[in-house]
Amino acid sequence: MKKSIMIVGVGGQGTLLASRLLGGVAMDAGYDVKVSEVHGMSQRGGSVVTYVKFGDEPVYSPVINEGEADVIISFELLEAARWLSYLKKGGKLLVNGQKMAPMPVITGAAVYPEGIEEKLAAAGADVTVIDALSLAEEAGSSKATNVVLMGLASKFMGFSEESWQKAIDTYVPKKFLDMNKKAFALGQKA
């Protein structure tokens, strides 16, 4: 068994923490794991992608290419469309419905496409869109959007509840722990 999961979004949305949680859970389950992150320039509001790969056989390449992802977790609607080509046939696309206009849209050089959700489904993706931002705000802060989405993702990964809780305890700073646990639970229910 080998699984390839992508976490995509906009630089600054907290995709790194999300990938650390998933990587931690996979390691805990005794799998070989590789996580490839983006640091540097793209983190300044650019399109960002993190690859998480794990399996009971060795994982060689740390990156995921077109048509290889079992699951894509997108922190923003347009980013789900951008990375669609990376999804395997029959793969799952978990999306935060939040829209963030990229600079070419703000300057008027491009338009933010309409009806993305329908077009993703029409392209054959198994899409789930939730309002993770509102759920995060319900948990206490928009900053917990990442953890809401990991709560949603946890339903499709087959790891135990304890190992997720353990990963949250390990990777989330203490003073935000309660809020993030609440956010995770809201994501699971979404």
Partner: peptide, 11 residues
């Protein structure tokens, strides 16, 4: 793989 049917604005 399947591509999104429209051009996607760069970010």
């Amino acid at each position: 793989y399947v591509d999104f049917p429209e051009t996607i604005p760069a970010r």
